[in-house]
């Protein structure tokens, strides 16, 4: 598997029902344990909205995009909304190519994402 130099961490937001998962560096199939762990913590805290912050993303291969789909399925199964913020044009195009943008709401900033779910 590809080595990963990514970092994934869970952060709180101004909205107690929303959690933010910040993705930095790489996201590949090797990121699965960290992403799953962050999501599990967010789910455990009762989050109804999960915001993925991609502003620190530097590299994503097809294994990484596969992780987003399985995360989306888990969130949908648990009745949660999955949103994305901080995407640059390149990663917006990838989400459009893979048609993930039809299922994940894309916003410029965390504030805009939170405003959209209020």
């Amino acid at each position: 598997m590809s080595d990963t130099t990514g970092r994934i961490e869970l952060r709180s937001t101004d909205d107690p029902t929303a959690s933010l998962i910040r993705i930095e560096g790489d996201i590949t199939s090797a990121s699965e344990p960290a992403l799953t762990d962050a999501y599990t913590q967010a789910d455990g805290s009762g989050a109804r909205t999960i915001i993925l912050d991609f502003s620190g993303l530097e590299y994503m291969n097809s294994g990484g995009i596969g992780l987003l789909v399985t995360l989306l399925v888990r969130a949908q199964r648990n009745g949660q909304r999955l949103l994305a913020v901080g995407l640059n044009e390149h990663y917006r195009q990838i989400l459009a190519l893979t048609r993930i943008d039809e299922a994940i709401g894309i916003h410029e900033t965390t504030d805009a994402a939170l405003a959209a779910v209020r």
Binding site: E58, Y59, M60, N61, H90, Q93, I94, A96, L97
Partner: peptide, 16 residues
């Protein structure tokens, strides 16, 4: 430090 970082830019298709 980031000069040797790999890029995914050429690996992805353009949206069609």
């Amino acid at each position: 430090a980031d000069a040797a970082r790999r890029s995914d830019a050429d690996a992805w298709a353009r949206p069609v």
